[in-house]
Design a protein around this nucleic acid. Sequence first.
DNA 1: TTGTAGGCGTTATCAC
DNA 2: GTGATAACGCCTACAA
Lengths: 352, 352
Amino acid sequence: MSDSGQSVGRKRRGAGRPTISDVARLAGVSPITVSRALRDPQRVSQDLRANIDVAVRTLGYVPDPNARALASSRADVIGVIIPSLTNNVFADVLRGMYDAINGSSYQIQLGNSRYSPIEEERLLTTFVSQRPSALIVSGIDQTPTARATLENAGCPVLQIMESGPDPVDMMVGFSHRKAAEEIVRHLWHAGYRRIGFIGARMDPRSQRRLQGYRDALEPLGGVDPALVTTTPAPSSVSLGRDLLRDLMSRAPDLDAVFCNNDDLAMGALFECQRSGLDVPRRLGIAGFNDLEMMAAAHPPLTSVRTPRYEIGYRSVRMVLDAITGRDIPERVIDIGYELAVRDSTGGPVLSQ
Amino acid sequence: MSDSGQSVGRKRRGAGRPTISDVARLAGVSPITVSRALRDPQRVSQDLRANIDVAVRTLGYVPDPNARALASSRADVIGVIIPSLTNNVFADVLRGMYDAINGSSYQIQLGNSRYSPIEEERLLTTFVSQRPSALIVSGIDQTPTARATLENAGCPVLQIMESGPDPVDMMVGFSHRKAAEEIVRHLWHAGYRRIGFIGARMDPRSQRRLQGYRDALEPLGGVDPALVTTTPAPSSVSLGRDLLRDLMSRAPDLDAVFCNNDDLAMGALFECQRSGLDVPRRLGIAGFNDLEMMAAAHPPLTSVRTPRYEIGYRSVRMVLDAITGRDIPERVIDIGYELAVRDSTGGPVLSQ
DNA sequence: TTGTAGGCGTTATCAC
DNA sequence: GTGATAACGCCTACAA
């Protein structure tokens, strides 16, 4: 009790909560043994481990993550950067991530780049300064600076949402271009011939969906620029209404529309309801992502089902495996997508 | 150059990035002066500060947040616990929070309790072990354990989303009970007499909305239990369809429905469209939160506009003020709400 | 398997 | 206003 660290006049700056030394003293071992028992119980003998467990519980000891990070030059943190918090797509991804990290000793450090590559650069710099155990970023269009930061981060790096060439390290996603191409082809096969495109935000993934739209129609009679409407404005249901109204007024013979995402598709549906256009007979509507509401709409809306939750879940499992040195059989995963074909693309009146 | 720290044979464990000592050496001052210049420039003389700035830039010095947290017993982190990531309500709150923290040197540490008080307890314990600068939690229904943790966290605490008695510390929210009461009264005044309630999830805030529904109808002829349908299942648009269908089959004379949230309201609208019920003449529909899609629907849907973004934004500003010791004029803020009255509650056929 | 020595990078404390 | 000293709590490296 002479050097308990609590004696009068002793100066301590900390908040006075128990430290690893307190536990060690109570258990009759050295601090490093406690440290080992906590991190890798197998490296400590049975009986000592038991003593230590008791001491930990008795004192209510909780390791200090900051001290741990400082000493080991490694924080038990996975940095995640996404471009939007309100986009349902990323909400699902995040849910998967948080589910996957549950029960582990790691924390997710979340950054919102707001679709700004520069903001992403800044966040990356901040995150790297914390020496994270892994980094997860959205998309494959990082700036050269950001890419360099990722390459020198000294930890596993995972790019999500898209598949593409030249990964920084690992990758989990799918081809937005191919997905778009496929659903546009579905519209064609359903009998639609004047197929338009409505797009908002027009971030890189939206651009590639537009490209997929073009790729699909090119061999099928060509792309009519008059049928394409895009805006850099953030996507919304109201915007879907507006964009469809614009497009219809400029191209009255439009008979189907592929919407960049589900919000726009929902807005397009409401616009049709308002103006009395029969869906799918007068106008076919397809969206992208297959949010839950799509199947519940009237009529149910066709979309591309993207495995968002799964992307989030698998990405965290993957970096966790990488962190713990486990074998990663595939470092680049094309996770695919599925068409969710519903009544809204049932075909025009005069289906061939 | 003899003791530059880079000389051969010297053992350094860190990743070799510049430290505050490197900056100090280059600027010809002591480390503590650099520390002060970085945190509170006014405490260091003009010329030294200039030298230090140059040195910082020359070396590309970035402070180590872990070392800082360890030494000061305080991490520049604001812990935030929300019950859901996919609920649009919290997405908006988070967006406000991330916007408000932008530019500060603080980080948000996000936890997802999945509507589980026990999970919230666990997260709180984990967060507190990091010595956060502030904590923000959702709702006012923490377990006694969680509440004790908050009270002993040694940092500002803010409860958001609801207003209520007995705050732990600070509070930003509004009365869900009163908001619900008001919109149900609106339905009554619009001429509806058989007003039902549809609820999902039924977390504490949903419960209070149900209470508001009852409080409104009690003095207006009483509550008919047959008009209330709730489920603990997570809310969704599809569920809104299902619940309305159930309710209509059990109470065919239903003439309006207050939905616990907007997803359910949207589902109720789709169900009416499917079964050919005129909205608002055969059935009035009101939701809660006023998500963007509500105004774009056909017909536009009535809801309660809740200031979600503002709650997020103001809550972070508030804890930031508290952290920096600024005066907080109001520690408990009722941020209010507004009715967004639209066509979907335009009144029944035989309006009085 | 366990322990010793010292460092991780920064800041609180107190002296000048 | 500036600096010396020690401490924050834990972990790596090496020794026994």
